[in-house]
Design a protein around this nucleic acid. Structure first.
Lengths: 259, 259
DNA sequence: CGCATCCTTGACCAGCTTCAATCAGGGTGG
DNA sequence: CCACCCTGATTGAAGCTGGTCAAGGATGCG
């Protein structure tokens, strides 16, 4: 349930979700890319294992495989997932100490983390400045805050179907950003229980809504992969504003900062 | 509905919520206090007026009187309050550009804002360093993020009564921090509609829950003032963890960073 | 005095939860 | 190889929480 080993080096190319995401947020210097590829201190975690514990600042790192969640519990055991972490996401890297970094983080699937201490050091210790990397990391943190706001909207004024459709679209956009899928298809290893804990619904109701979406042929969900048949209809079903055309203004996606 | 005037100077002592809050977060240098007291560019806003518009970075400022809210809407008009702003709170001051600063902010009561541009300049332009002030501002931003997480828990796994009790306790703590009330009594100018938009309940149901809490003699709410009869019972009613004793560990309040 | 805003209350009902079984797939030990 | 078990998905029935609709009441202000 805990890190089941530390290896000096991740496999070649293992950093690709991180590099894909960051380089899309801001063009990365060549040096930044090799810095990222050179990160070590890999740790593996089994599903259910803790990546970080409440109250302890987690060591800076990138999630390079598997999914995880920031979790909080009520005294009686009710569980709420505050936010999900997917490959390419950053953990414990922040300017100020962030309350978000002080939650329990648990692996929802087997997961691998690489240490980002070397990157933080390179950004701070005034060696060669890496403004592209610094900007990308900043934007990544901003996206994370954006997602907290999206989560509040999701839980606040959306009904069950809207919550689930909205979540799927957010996950699609995040997976695309990390080069893990395309507009119609992406890895989705969450159990219905995890979806329930994100959307604050009961497992049973999540199941019913998914069945309904399948019946409407909007969605397929099998073998840990999601297929969105009609993303446009799904967006409508999610109660999202109809997206403006590219020529007029940059479309607003849940990954976009254009608000 | 818009700023109804700009006066060169706020009244003497008008900055006291700001100074009370910041100095409780971190001891302020004398210079920092006079810097704050010297802030000008006061703007007044009537209830319902916009303090900042979606998509525009708001000018940095402190709310020195009145309450406001960060608001987001769904296409069909449903409204969700992402977070409340009370006197002493900061707006538009951040290291990186924060998505939170890109929401609509509306005044819920008549409100006054002073510009914080001079403070930001003093913190950045390497004149005399003011580490106490810088730390206090940082902590203030961290508290804001903490409150987003609290809001997710509130909307996620709490029922109507728990949401309202939890909100009242949060507001109590925030008002105490800004020297605007004590453990049992504080200004609470929110309409039931605003409470509904924070807690994602209907107005009617907010009313019923408040009636019930009054009947149980846990709460009084009159003339824009809240009285908490039994804060301990209210906390229990809010589904909060029983708070540990002061000697053992610092108690966890919604204003505390001790997580 | 009349209007506007906010609060209050009742009746009804829908969305979601809870409880309880059942089913399907995958891994494991005999 | 197969019985067994565990986790996750599925489905039905019943009931509660909270929403919606509708109609006043209270308060304050021009």
């Amino acid at each position: 349930m805990s890190p089941s080993g530390r290896l000096p080096k991740p496999a070649a190319g293992a950093l690709s979700p991180v590099i894909a995401k960051l380089s899309r947020l801001s063009p990365l210097e060549d040096e930044a890319v090799s810095l990222l590829n050179g990160l070590d201190r890999l740790s593996r975690h089994s599903g259910g294992g803790a990546l970080a514990r409440e109250g302890e600042a987690p060591p800076p790192g990138f999630l390079i495989s598997g999914w995880a969640a920031r979790v909080r519990r009520l005294p009686d055991g009710r569980r709420q997932i505050l936010g999900l972490l997917v490959p390419g996401d950053v953990l414990g890297v922040s300017v100020r100490l962030r309350p978000l970094d002080l939650c329990d983080v648990v692996a929802l699937t087997p997961a691998e983390l690489v240490g980002a201490g070397a990157m933080v050091a390179a950004l701070n210790d005034g060696g060669r400045p890496l403004p592209g990397l610094a900007e990308a990391v900043h934007l990544s943190l901003a996206l994370e805050e954006q997602r907290l706001l999206d989560q509040i909207m999701r839980l606040g004024r959306r009904n069950a179907a809207e919550r689930i459709c909205d979540l799927l679209l957010e996950l699609r956009d995040r997976m695309v950003l990390a080069a893990q899928g395309d507009l119609h298809r992406f890895p989705m290893p969450l159990t219905q229980e995890a979806v329930a804990d994100v959307t604050a619904l009961s497992i049973v109701h999540v199941n019913r809504v998914l069945q309904q979406l399948r019946r409407e042929n909007l969605l397929e969900l099998r073998n840990g992969e999601a297929q969105l048949r009609r993303p446009d209809l799904l967006a409508e079903r999610a109660g999202r504003p109809p997206l403006r055309e590219p020529p007029a203004a940059p479309a607003r996606t849940s990954d976009g900062l254009s608000r």
